[in-house]
Computed example of a mutant assay.
Amino acid sequence: MIELTRGENQIGILPGLGASLSYWRLRGRDLLVPTADPNLRAQQDTPVAAYPLMPYSNRIADARFSFEGQDYELAKNIVGESGSIHGNAWEHAWTVIQQDPDRAILLYDHDPSVGENAKEWPFAYRGVISFVLLDNGLNVELLIANRDTRAQPIGMGFHPFFVKAANSGLTFQAQGVWENDAATLPARHAAVEGEWDFASGQKLTERRIDNCFSGWADRAVISYPEDGYEMHIDADPVFQHLVVFTAPEKPFVAVEAVTNMNDAIHHPEVLERGLHVLKPDQRLSGVIRYKVVERRG
């Protein structure tokens, strides 16, 4: 693990475990919940607090897809499910290419010609992640470049496990929400009304959500009224979607800024699915900004 510090702001990074964060601590307060998921084999049952999603976010149904007339079959990297999830960058060691006291840049090169790598993703790409500490926040910049000789479909995002307190609330605006089928795949696009409307904020304690919101307005706020602070999440426009996961029995809420809708590769009929087709040497990048706003003291 490498550690970055700026004043009372600290993060721990695990380069050997998918460039994951092991913690984020500000003024002695833990902002993330390290979480071990035995169903994600590559994390080796190690608790992680956040990790990058490349070269796609969320699930690809049945771990297979077709692109430009070619059929591809992927490895199933989540126990108990028929699909593949969150790409493969989180499954590999990353190289630290720059480290300063309060910032670090890490790189991962995916080569499908090596071993079984083609089963993880059939195209060559380079992933870069930059962590930059601020006095009251953290900036995460994601970049993915097509290093293949062919075009490839690309998506990306970041998956933090934020603390969920007794009265935590979540506020954001979006244009729609994807309701899921039994396999947690998008089945119906619905309006953000009633239980799906978070524009004025909703409490998280009893909610069970594992859905992708479309047309996200690039701002979300998690409130902690008893603890006197808010977590503000802002992202560049490339992150058009927001995935939210929370459950009553879990001590965290995952609020994930991502480029693509879940299973985007299988939904060419959706104009705003957020799937980017990169030609050789093209790249996609964006910054997600996390800021702690104190509401008392």
Score class of each variant (00 low, 15 high):
His276Cys: 07
Pro248Leu: 05
Asn146Cys: 08
Gln240Val: 12
Thr35Gln: 09
Ala61Lys: 10
Leu53Val: 13
Val48Gln: 06
Glu68Ile: 01
His189Cys: 14
Phe67Asn: 01
Leu275Glu: 11
Glu81Asn: 06
Asp210Pro: 04
Tyr23Phe: 15
Pro153Gln: 08
Phe65Cys: 03
Trp94Pro: 03
His241Arg: 07
Val243Ser: 07
Arg27Pro: 00
Leu170Met: 02
Pro186Leu: 00
Ala93Arg: 10
His189Trp: 14
Ile78Arg: 12
Gln240Thr: 15
Ile2Thr: 07
Ala254Thr: 11
Asn88Ser: 13
Thr259His: 07
Arg103Tyr: 12
Ser130Asn: 07
Ser22Met: 01
Ser22Leu: 03
Ser57Phe: 13
Glu120Val: 02
Asp102Ala: 14
Pro186Asn: 00
Arg59Thr: 07
Ser113Tyr: 13
Val244Phe: 06
Tyr108Trp: 15
Arg29Trp: 07
Glu272Ser: 13
Arg188Ser: 08
Pro52Arg: 08
Phe172Asn: 02
Glu249Gly: 10
Asp37Lys: 13
Arg6Asn: 09
Leu21Pro: 04
Leu40Pro: 00
Tyr229Trp: 15
Arg208Glu: 08
Gln152Asn: 11
Pro122Gln: 00
Gln44Leu: 11
Gly87Trp: 06
Asp148Ala: 10
Glu195Ile: 14
Gly194Glu: 04
Phe172Arg: 01
Ile129Pro: 01
Arg150Ile: 05
Val48Phe: 08
Phe131Ala: 03
Arg289Tyr: 07
Arg59Ala: 09
Asn58Leu: 14
Asp227Ile: 03
Pro122Asn: 00
Gly12Trp: 06
Leu17Glu: 03
Val48Gly: 02
Asp102Gln: 12
Gln202Lys: 15
Thr149Ser: 14
Gln99Pro: 00
Ala264Trp: 05
Leu32His: 09
Ala187Ser: 13
Gln10Met: 10
His159Tyr: 08
Arg207Cys: 01
Pro225Gly: 05
Ala187Pro: 11
Val132Asn: 11
Tyr23Pro: 06
Gln175Gly: 15
Val243Leu: 15
Asn77Glu: 11
Asp210Ile: 07
Pro55Trp: 08
Thr171Val: 14
Phe172Trp: 01
Met261Lys: 04
Gly176Ser: 15
Ala190Phe: 11
Phe67Ala: 03
Met261Asn: 02
Thr5Pro: 00
Leu74Met: 09
His92Pro: 03
His266Thr: 07
Asp135Tyr: 10
Asn260Thr: 14
Asp181Cys: 02
Lys250Ala: 06
Trp216Val: 04
Gly69Thr: 11
Thr46His: 12
Trp24Met: 07
Asp102Lys: 05
Glu116Cys: 02
Trp94Tyr: 10
Tyr125Ser: 04
Arg126Ala: 12
Ala61Tyr: 03
Arg296Phe: 12
Asp234Leu: 10
Leu204Thr: 02
Asp71Pro: 09
Asp281Tyr: 13
Phe198Gly: 06
Tyr23Cys: 12
Ile288Tyr: 03
Gln98Pro: 00
Thr246Gln: 04
Gly115Arg: 06
Glu8Met: 09
Phe65Glu: 03
Phe252Tyr: 14
Tyr23Gly: 04
Gln10His: 15
Gly176Trp: 13
Ile265Ser: 02
Asp100Ala: 15
Cys212Leu: 12
Asn136Trp: 11
Ala247Val: 07
Ala151Lys: 09
Leu204Pro: 02
Ser200Lys: 14
Val163Lys: 10
Glu226Pro: 11
